[in-house]
């Protein structure tokens, strides 16, 4: 417990304290300065976009992995975990080698907002897949069969029977990938170029405040990221409780 406090709780509390040293005004001035505000806006917008993409693609991937059978499925299953295991800086380099200036495809998106999106999509790929997959595996087929025998089409069955039971898992996965997208740093360093007002995200902003010795400002932006992370954890806890209650 002491160890946990020394390593995690006290340092995180220090972030919030430092953010408030200059009072509410100091916090607000930092956050609303044009460069920081645009970094925050970009981060939130990109994170929302990536989360929506993940909800669609992640659910589709989970579906394919559980319900479909085809050659190479095992490989697909393993490859999905690669973004989890790969160091973030390597992830950035990896994407740069296909979508950078030496791209064999001739696509060069380095230092643009598309690159930020790409990096975020890469690092958040496994979240929705891995939360939806086990739920989909444990779904009882009887209900689908009943729906089908009562004349429901496959699409109706999916929309009315399968999707509602997947919803908590999809929400949980979406929350995780949003949190990750908001906080991403490593994969963006090489790929996005960190151009102020264009491709600079919140984490990069924190780092440049630190490098300029402006700890209070760094802590202000960091506190926002921290609050988002905490909200996501609370949301996940609530979802878990609701699902557990329903299962009883």
């Amino acid at each position: 417990m002491t160890w946990f406090s020394l390593l995690v709780l006290i340092p995180l509390a220090a972030v919030v304290l430092t953010a408030s040293t200059n009072g509410w005004d100091g916090f607000w001035t930092t956050v609303s300065s044009s460069q920081t505000a645009s970094a925050l806006r970009l981060t939130v917008l990109e994170a929302i976009g990536v989360t929506v993409l993940n909800v669609v693609m992640g659910t589709a991937l989970a579906w394919v992995l559980v319900r479909d059978r085809f050659w190479g499925k095992r490989v697909l299953d393993v490859v999905i975990d690669v973004p989890f295991a790969l160091p973030t800086i390597v992830a950035g380099l990896v994407l740069l080698s296909l979508y950078g200036d030496q791209s064999p495809l001739g696509i060069d998106v380095a230092n643009t907002r598309i690159a930020v999106f790409l990096a975020l999509a890469f690092v958040t790929l496994p979240f929705v897949v891995r939360t939806v997959q086990p739920v989909l595996e444990s779904l009882e087929r009887d209900v689908e069969e009943a729906a089908a025998s009562l004349g429901a089409s496959r699409a109706t069955t999916f929309r009315r029977i399968i999707l509602p039971s997947l919803a908590p898992a999809i929400t949980a996965g979406a929350a995780l990938s949003f949190a990750r997208a908001i906080s991403e740093y490593g994969s963006l360093v090489l790929l996005s170029g960190n151009l102020p007002n264009r491709t600079e995200v919140a984490s990069v902003r924190v780092l440049s405040y630190i490098e300029n010795g402006n700890e209070a400002a760094a802590a202000s932006v960091a506190a926002i990221l921290l609050v988002v992370a905490l909200l996501v954890i609370v949301l996940l806890d609530l979802i878990q409780r609701r699902v557990a209650r329903r299962g009883e």
């Binding site: 340092p11 995180l12 220090a14 972030v15 973030t88 995780l176 949190a179 990750r180 908001i182 906080s183 991403e184 740093y185 490593g186 919140a202 984490s203 990069v204 924190v206 780092l207 630190i210 700890e215 760094a218 802590a219 960091a222 990221l225 921290l226 992370a229 996501v232 954890i233």
Partner: peptide
């Protein structure tokens, strides 16, 4: 779920 940058700063 918290950013590594925030961890470093804290």
């Amino acid at each position: 779920s918290v950013s590594p940058v925030v961890v470093g700063l804290s």
